[in-house]
Computed example of a mutant assay.
Amino acid sequence: MALLTIARMGNPVLRAMAQPIADPTDPDLARLAADMIDTMIDAPGVGLAAPQIDVSRRIVVFRVPADRGEGESVATTVLINPVIEPLDGGMELGWEGCLSIPGLRGLVPRHSRIRYRGVGLDGQPIEREASGFHARVVQHETDHLDGVLYIDRMDDLKLLTFIEEAHHITEARNG
C-alpha cells in the first residue's frame, strides 16, 4: 500500500463538495481505501476523508480506539456515500483536531447521537447508531465530503488553540 500526502487547509479540494461514488465494488476504490487506511494510521489519526488526500470522492475511513471511545471501540470502517441523521437535539462540545490543520485543536459542538448510513466496499449497506466520540468522528469526516472544516462549526474561535496550549482553555472552563 501507499502512504498518501494529506492536503492542508487552503487546498481548494477541502472546500469542494465531493462527488458520489457509483460503484462501491470498483477494485480501484478498494486500493484507494487501503491507502487511506495506511495514511490515517501513519499520520496518526482516527479518520480520513478522500478530499484530505486530494480525491474529491464521497468515501471516508475511520476507527474508534477503546481508549478514545469511552470504552467503545469501532474497528476500522470504510464508509462510502455516507448520510448522517441526528437522533436528538442534543449537542456536545468536544475537542477536535484535523490532519489537514496540523497543530491546532478546537472545541466544536456536535450532535451527541446520530445514525449514519452508507455502503461498504462490498456494496452492502452499513447502518449504525453512534454517540460520544464515535459520533464526533463520523460527523467530522463526513463534513469533509461537503467542504466543511471543523473550524467552520466552532461557535467561538477563542476556543481554537495550539495543541500545547489547550490545557489553558480546559483549566479555564473547569474553573
Score class of each variant (00 low, 15 high):
Leu3Thr: 14
Thr5Trp: 06
Ala7His: 09
Arg8Phe: 01
Asn11Ile: 01
Arg15Val: 00
Ala18Glu: 00
Gln19His: 00
Gln19Leu: 11
Gln19Glu: 11
Pro20Phe: 03
Ala22Asp: 14
Ala22Trp: 05
Thr25Asp: 07
Thr25Cys: 11
Asp26Ala: 14
Asp26Lys: 01
Asp26Met: 06
Asp28Ala: 15
Ala30Gln: 15
Arg31Asn: 13
Ala34Phe: 04
Asp42Trp: 04
Ala50Gly: 13
Gln52Thr: 12
Asp54Gln: 13
Val55Gln: 15
Val55Tyr: 01
Arg58Ala: 04
Ile59Met: 10
Pro65Tyr: 03
Asp67Glu: 15
Gly71Met: 12
Glu72Val: 15
Glu72Asn: 14
Ser73Tyr: 10
Val74Glu: 09
Ala75Phe: 09
Ala75Gly: 13
Thr76Tyr: 01
Ile80Phe: 05
Ile80Trp: 02
Pro82Lys: 05
Val83Cys: 00
Glu85Thr: 12
Leu87Cys: 07
Asp88Tyr: 04
Asp88Gln: 09
Gly89Lys: 08
Gly89Ile: 07
Leu93Phe: 04
Glu96Lys: 01
Leu99Cys: 08
Ser100Arg: 02
Ser100Lys: 04
Ile101Ser: 07
Gly103Val: 08
Gly103His: 05
Gly103Cys: 11
Leu104Cys: 00
Leu104Phe: 12
Arg105Ser: 02
Leu107Ser: 09
Pro109Cys: 07
His111Ala: 10
Ser112Met: 08
Arg113Lys: 10
Ile114Lys: 06
Ile114Ala: 10
Asp122His: 03
Asp122Met: 04
Gln124Pro: 04
Glu127Trp: 00
Arg128Asn: 12
Glu129Phe: 05
Gly132Thr: 12
Gly132Val: 08
Phe133Cys: 13
Phe133Gly: 12
Phe133Ile: 08
His134Gln: 11
Ala135His: 03
Val137His: 07
Val138Ser: 10
Val138Cys: 13
Val138Asn: 10
Thr142Phe: 01
His144Lys: 05
Asp146Pro: 01
Tyr150Ser: 09
Arg153Thr: 14
Asp156Trp: 03
Leu157Cys: 09
Lys158Tyr: 02
Ile163Pro: 00
Glu164Tyr: 01
Ala166Glu: 14
Glu171Ser: 11
Asn174Met: 05
